Every structure is written in structure tokens, then in C-alpha cells.
Deep mutational scan, measured.
Amino acid sequence: MEVVDPQQLGMFTEGELMSVGMDTFIHRIDSTEVIYQPRRKRAKLIGKYLMGDLLGEGSYGKVKEVLDSETLCRRAVKILKKKKLRRIPNGEANVKKEIQLLRRLRHKNVIQLVDVLYNEEKQKMYMVMEYCVCGMQEMLDSVPEKRFPVCQAHGYFCQLIDGLEYLHSQGIVHKDIKPGNLLLTTGGTLKISDLGVAEALHPFAADDTCRTSQGSPAFQPPEIANGLDTFSGFKVDIWSAGVTLYNITTGLYPFEGDNIYKLFENIGKGSYAIPGDCGPPLSDLLKGMLEYEPAKRFSIRQIRQHSWFRKKHPPAEAPVPIPPSPDTKDRWRSMTVVPYLEDLHGADEDEDLFDIEDDIIYTQDFTVPGQVPEEEASHNGQRRGLPKAVCMNGTEAAQLSTKSRAEGRAPNPARKACSASSKIRRLSACKQQ
């Protein structure tokens, strides 16, 4: 084909351009004929944790799935940006308080904090938690009735009371019990989460009196709706648990309003109706937990002794299953770290194939690490110290990083047969305790 000078094309009309061969290198194709290559998922490591896909996002930050490269346990990490926390009232204080509380709590029905990582340079905090497959609110939203069968609701409620009793025994008032803060594992274990607005009572406090509340409006008791200066913290949790039980068994809320002012007005009056299909035992329990006067409201001991709580409820309806993943529609909620794991395991070791967030990740503290002497050669063979940054567990980050890069360049065919977990650990520049 004859090559045409581009400067001469402006002298031709459209018809003349076609005659000189423009149609031979300008093609129009339908979008259905285009085959897009999927974007390669680059592996990203935060300390010893391999990052997966997004699980959810809230006002405080994002939650992603991660894999512990040492234990191969599935975890969830809450990623918090200090810049964003400053824009939220009491944001930083709530996060630090939640970390302090979770560090000393150990119960099967309370979410466990596994690790805390802090990135000084990017001003990011990573709260590594045990993995929960789904939230209770997500399960309720997945069915038209917006409720659980009585047998399933009873099982979840009993676990909620177990976890709540443990928190109260530790002198902690949750203040925000609701389905949105109750998570579930694949085995059906309920976990109380989000202790950001919780309050730890003084060890020598005479009672459970509280003065502040930041919980969700629909789950607040009349004493808070009416603006009382002080109130019983434990009875606030009992009320919120009662509203939660009402919601998961009926699909409704005892109090509603077009806006928060109308909602608080209705809560302050204390008038509500219980659907007739709840039955006398459940209705009596709800009335005891939603008692207007805090002094007359049920205690956890009274809830445990109630006939509806103690009764064994046979399954009359099919239980609400864990819904498919909202993004991938995966009904099994498979591990989202698998594509990243395959990338590390299947590809040659190259620095361009993975990302390490930083050479140094500070753990379990908000301060910069200490310094240790770096050896410097002298005339008599002895070495003197220069400062060298280290990880919180004493690992020399720069030395590990250099060693990792040197190993990656060394030709050794046997290394390709290593397991995925050992490869992740070798790529991680800074081991965590």
C-alpha cells in the first residue's frame, strides 16, 4: 500500500481520502468484538498479612480480608486513616479506646483483636480482627420478611446475652447493641463488635452510672431520649438488646419516626405494640426488656430465667442462610486472597510482582521504634555504632529488605517449588510478632 504524507491529507475531501486508502487503516468495530484482558491483581503485604478484597466500608474506614502468612488464618483488617478520623467527632479517641478494650477481652461471643499495625509515614492504622463471614443486618436484609425464624432468632439472642453478660462482668457498657454490630462466623457463632462508643466503668465505681451516649437513635432507651444527665449503663444495653430481639423476630421496630426528633419523642413516651403472632412468652420477655422505668427493666439474670429464653424451640421454618457475597455473588464466600496468593505462588519472584506497604510497620504502639547501633568497621576489626531503624520486634528492616532482594536475584530452581506461605513470609520485609 502506498504511504501517504499526513501533511497532504488536509487537502483532500472525505471521498478523496477514502480513495487514497484511509479506509485501510481506520476501522470501526462493535464493542462486543473487544476482548478485555482482566487487570492483574497485584499482591500487597502489610507486615506478614497478605491483603485481599474489600469486605465493607463504614464511617471510620474500610475493612478488607487478609491472610496471615505465618498461621494461614483468615483475618479481617480495619484500615483507618488518621486524616479521616480527625474529621469525625471523637474519632481518634474512640478508636484508641476500642483498641484498649479489645486487647483485654477474651470471649467467644466478643470479636477478638489479633494485631494492631501502624504506618507512621502514611498515617494509617490497621486493626487486624478475627474473620466473620457476614453481619446479622446483612442476613436480615437478604430476606423479604426482614426477620429470622424463632428457632434461629433464639439461638442468636442467647449468644448475644452470653457476650453481653461477659462485657458487663468486665465493667464495660457497649451502648450500641444492634444487628449491624453483631457479626457471624461460618459456624454460626455470634460476635459482638464495634466497641468504639463503649465505656469502661471505673474499677471502684459504686454502680453503672453513665453520662454520655453515642449509640444508634432507634435503639436508645427513654432515659436517653428524654435527655437525662445520668442513667444506668447496663440497663441501656438491656433495652438495646430488647429492641434487637423485637427486630429479628418481627422484622419491625418498636419505635419509629420520620426524623430523629419524632423518633425520640415516640421513644420518650414509651408506647409501642407487640405483634400478636409473637406469642405470650416472647411478648412477656419483650415487655420486661423494654420496660420504661430502668429500675423495673429486666436484668440479665431475669432474662436467663425467663421461660422463652430457657425453652427449646424446634425449627418450624427453614433458617435464613448466609447470603452470597454482594460484589462477586459467591454463595460460598470464598477467600478473596486466592488470586493474590496464586500471583505470588505461580509467578517468578520479581520485585515488580508484589507490593510491600512499607519497609517498617510499627505494631502494638503509636510511637516510632527505637534505634540500635549499626556496626561500623574500624582499624582493629571492631565496629562502632551508628543508628539503624528496627521493627518493634527488633528485626532490622533494611537488612531483611536487602537480603530479600538478593535472594530474589539468585538463580535457584529449587526455590520455585516452595509453598505459597513460605514465599509470602520471604517477601515480607518486616516480620511481626
Rank of each mutant, 00 (worst) to 15 (best):
V337K: 13
I356Y: 07
D327V: 10
D141M: 08
K41V: 10
P326H: 04
L45N: 05
F231Y: 04
P339L: 05
S213N: 15
K403S: 05
N181E: 00
S232H: 10
V66P: 01
V66D: 01
E265F: 06
L341N: 13
E342S: 11
T71F: 08
E342T: 14
Y49F: 07
E130T: 10
S142K: 13
A218T: 04
L45M: 09
E349A: 13
I224M: 07
E199S: 08
G187V: 04
C73D: 12
D355C: 10
G61V: 03
S59F: 03
D258F: 04
E291P: 01
L344F: 04
D208Y: 05
Q433R: 05
R104T: 10
D207M: 08
L400T: 07
H313E: 11
R106P: 07
A93G: 03
L427R: 14
H379T: 10
A410F: 11
F264I: 03
E357M: 13
S404A: 10
A389E: 13
P373N: 14
R333V: 07
A198T: 09
Q7D: 10
S271Y: 00
A414D: 05
P411D: 14
P144A: 07
P275W: 06
M136D: 00
K388S: 08
L282T: 02
T32A: 15
E265L: 08
T186F: 10
K84S: 15
R426H: 15
K423D: 07
P387W: 15
L102F: 07
D208S: 09
K423S: 14
G215Q: 01
L182P: 00
S307F: 11
L195R: 01
I361A: 12
L183Y: 14
T395M: 06
L140K: 06
K81A: 15
D194F: 00
V143I: 07
P413A: 12
P387G: 14
S419F: 12
C134I: 11
T189L: 09
N226S: 04
D277V: 09
S334P: 11
Y362P: 14
G257I: 15
G171V: 09
C132P: 00
M11G: 11
V20G: 11
A318D: 13
I267L: 03
G408A: 15
I260F: 04
G52A: 05
P280T: 13
V243A: 06
A218N: 10
S325T: 08
G381F: 07
K329L: 11
I161V: 02
L117H: 06
R39M: 14
T336H: 14
A43F: 09
L67D: 03
T24L: 08
E357T: 14
E121L: 12
Y272P: 11
L67T: 02
S299W: 09
K64V: 11
I111R: 08
S193C: 05
P275A: 03
P413W: 05
S325D: 07
A205E: 15
K78I: 00
P254S: 03
G257R: 03
D365P: 14
C430W: 06
D162T: 11
G276S: 11
I172P: 00
K78Q: 07
C418L: 12
C278W: 04
I361N: 09
M18I: 03
E374D: 05
C210T: 10
E70Y: 07
P38K: 14
G215N: 12
K311T: 10
E376A: 11
G188R: 08
K108T: 10
A198Y: 06
V320A: 13
S193N: 15
K62I: 10
M139R: 05
P281M: 10
V66Q: 07
L9V: 02
P315L: 11
E376M: 05
A417D: 11
A218S: 07
K235C: 11
Q364D: 04
E256V: 04
R87A: 01
R415K: 08
E120I: 13
T402N: 05
P179M: 02
F298V: 04
H313Y: 01
E199A: 12
I300S: 02
I303Y: 00
T185C: 07
E407V: 11
G56A: 04
D258W: 12
H27D: 08
A347F: 11
E57V: 05
P314N: 13
D359T: 14
H174N: 01
D350V: 08
G279E: 02
A200F: 02
K175P: 00
K78W: 00
M129L: 03
D68G: 07
G91I: 15
T24G: 11
P323H: 11
P324E: 13
Q220R: 04
A417G: 12
R333D: 15
Y118P: 10
K124R: 08
P321S: 11
V116H: 08
Y36L: 06
K312D: 12
Q159Y: 06
P275I: 08
F298R: 02
P326S: 10
D327W: 14
A241D: 02
C73I: 03
Q37T: 15
R409L: 06
V95R: 06
S193T: 09
K269S: 11
Y166A: 12
K81V: 05
H202R: 01
R106E: 15
L201G: 03
Y292C: 02
G56Y: 00
I35D: 15
D284E: 06
G188W: 05
L54F: 06
K269G: 12
N94D: 10
M22S: 15
D115W: 03
A43Y: 15
G215Y: 07
N412P: 14
E407W: 01
F231W: 02
E98H: 03
P323T: 10
P38E: 10
S401V: 11
K311R: 11
K269L: 12
E65Y: 06
A316M: 06
L290N: 00
M125V: 04
I79P: 01
G58I: 00
Q137S: 11
T13R: 07
L101Q: 05
F298A: 13
E407T: 15
H27L: 10
K122D: 13
Y156A: 01
R297S: 00
S428E: 15
C132V: 03
C418I: 11
T189G: 05
P319M: 11
K235W: 13
L195S: 05
M22A: 08
R103C: 06
Q399S: 05
K82D: 08
V34S: 09
Y49P: 01
G268S: 14
N412E: 13
Q7V: 11
E357G: 12
S428G: 14
V128H: 03
R86V: 11
E357H: 14
I224H: 12
Q399D: 11
D277F: 10
P323I: 13
G276V: 06
I88Q: 00
S428D: 08
V337A: 09
Q170V: 09
Y272H: 06
D68Q: 05
V197L: 06
Q214L: 06
Q432G: 15
A389W: 06
A410R: 14
V368A: 11
K312A: 09
E14S: 10
I35E: 15
Q152V: 08
D277N: 07
T209N: 13
K122V: 04
D176N: 00
G288E: 12
L400A: 15
V243M: 02
L54N: 15
K431M: 09
R39K: 04
I224Q: 03
S19L: 04
S401C: 06
S307R: 05
N119V: 03
D358A: 09
V4D: 12
Y362E: 06
A153G: 07
D277S: 05
S422N: 03
A318I: 12
T244I: 03
D350P: 12
I177A: 01
R40E: 11
H154V: 01
N380R: 14
P373C: 10
F204R: 05
E396C: 09
Q37V: 11
D327I: 14
V110C: 05
A429E: 13
G196A: 02
L286I: 10
L54Y: 12
K48W: 04
K312L: 10
H174S: 03
F309V: 01
P144L: 03
Y261V: 09
F231V: 04
G163W: 05
Y156F: 09
R86A: 09
C278T: 09
Y118C: 03
R301L: 15
F255V: 07
E342Y: 11
D330I: 10
A398C: 10
I29R: 07
V133I: 09
L105G: 03
P280V: 11
S334L: 09
L190V: 06
G215T: 08
H313D: 08
Y340N: 06
P314E: 13
R333Y: 13
V338W: 03
L102M: 04
E291M: 15
P144K: 15
V114D: 08
S334M: 06
L80H: 04
H202V: 09
G171A: 08
Y340V: 14
C278G: 07
Q364S: 11
G91V: 02
V243P: 00
C210D: 11
G279Q: 10
E223Y: 06
R75S: 03
A225I: 11
G91A: 06
H306G: 02
P373L: 07
A397F: 10
K97D: 09
S193H: 01
G394E: 09
E351M: 06
N259D: 07
P6S: 13
I99C: 14
G91Q: 07
C151A: 11
S422I: 10
G279T: 14
Q305E: 06
S428N: 04
